[in-house]
Amino acid sequence: MGGGRLPGLVNSTAYRQLISKNGAAMKLGDRVLIWGASGGLGSYATQMAIAGGATPVCVVSSPEKAEICHRMGAEHVIDRSAEGYKFWNEDGTKQNPKEWKRLGSDIRELTRGHDVDIVFEHPGRETFGASVYVTKKGGTIVTCASTSGYMHEYDNRYLWMNLKRIVSSHFANYREAWEANSLIRRRLIHPTLSKTYPMDQVGQAAYDVHKNAHQGKVGVLCLAPEEGLGVTMPERREPHLDAINRFRNI
C-alpha cells in the first residue's frame, strides 16, 4: 500500500496520467511540475518523467522527501514547507494569487525562465488554483484523486485566455497497465518502498499514510511473517527456508 493504493495500481495510474495519450501525453523535453513527488503516485511520475526525457520539477513537504527526489535523479526540487506557500487564507475561503505567482517565479528560477508544460495534479482543492496558474500557455493540467478536496477552484482567465487544458485521468486500461508494469520489469523505474509493516499493524500503516508521515510507499506483509519471503532466486531464498516452511505449516 502507499498513498492508499497497491503499487501496481499506483504505477498504472501514474502511467496513464502522465504518459498515455489518454492523459497528458508527455513528450521528450517537457517540463513537468509534480506535486507530492516523493510519494507513492508522485515518485512513479518523477521516475517516468526522467526516463522519458522530460524534466521534473518536484514539489515535496520536507528536506527528507526532497532528498528522495534527488536520489531518484531529479535536479529541480521545491520544499513547500520551507517556502511556506499559503495558497488559501486562514479559514480556507479565498485563494491568494500572489502565492501562485511566487510559486511560478520559483519554478522559473529553477528552469531558467520557463514555465511547465504539464502539471501532475493530485492534491486537488489545495493546489489546483496554483496549478492552473503556473502551467505554460497551451499547457496541460492533468488531474486525479484530489486528496485535499474535490471541489476545485481556479481563476478561469488563466485557463481560458492562455489556451490551457484540464485533462482528467482515472486508473488505466489493460494496455496502459501492461506498459507501466513493463517499465518496472525492465528496471527503468522502481517502487520507492520506505517501510514495511506486519499484518497486525495495518491500521498504523493506513494512519501513517493518511497523516503523510511516510516517505515514498509503504508495504504490509499480508502472507509473509517477515521480509524477503517473496523472492524466487534460490540463493536469496536459502536464508529464509526455515521461516517459509514454518509459515506453510501454519
Rank of each mutant, 00 (worst) to 15 (best):
I244K: 06
V220A: 12
R31H: 11
G39A: 02
Q215R: 09
V231G: 15
G2M: 03
P239Q: 13
G40H: 02
A24G: 01
K195R: 12
Y150S: 12
Y174E: 14
K137C: 07
D117R: 00
E238A: 15
E238D: 13
R237T: 13
G139F: 02
A130G: 00
N96E: 13
T13F: 07
N173R: 10
Q95Y: 13
Y174S: 06
K98Q: 14
V167D: 00
H122A: 05
H152N: 15
F120D: 08
G230E: 05
K211P: 03
D115S: 12
G3S: 06
W35D: 04
L33C: 04
G230F: 10
L223T: 14
I189P: 03
G36H: 02
A24M: 00
W35I: 09
A25G: 03
R236S: 15
G42E: 03
P97E: 07
L103P: 05
G52Y: 06
P234D: 08
E90L: 06
L33D: 02
L9F: 11
V32S: 04
H114K: 13
D106F: 11
R236Q: 15
A24C: 02
G113R: 03
W100Q: 00
V134C: 05
V10W: 00
Y197Q: 09
T140V: 07
P63T: 06
P239N: 14
R112G: 02
R175W: 10
T232K: 15
R186K: 13
Y207G: 01
K217G: 03
P123H: 02
L103K: 05
G53T: 07
V132Q: 09
A25H: 07
P239A: 14
Y197K: 12
S12H: 11
L223Q: 15
E153T: 11
I50V: 12
E90M: 08
S38M: 09
E176N: 08
A213T: 01
A82M: 11
V119C: 03
Y207V: 08
K101Y: 00
A37S: 13
G139S: 04
G129S: 02
T196G: 01
V209F: 00
L223W: 14
S81Q: 12
G219A: 15
L159E: 10
R187V: 07
L229M: 15
C222N: 13
Q204K: 15
E226Q: 14
A24I: 02
K94G: 02
G52A: 08
R186I: 04
R236N: 15
P97K: 08
G23D: 01
G40S: 07
L6P: 00
I50S: 09
H152M: 12
G53H: 06
V231N: 14
K65E: 06
S131R: 04
E75L: 10
G124H: 01
E126I: 09
M161D: 15
W35N: 06
E226S: 13
R187Q: 09
T232Y: 08
I141S: 05
K98V: 09
T111C: 07
K65C: 06
T135D: 05
C69S: 10
A172N: 05
S148R: 00
A51I: 04
L241D: 05
V119N: 02
Y85G: 08
K65M: 07
V10I: 12
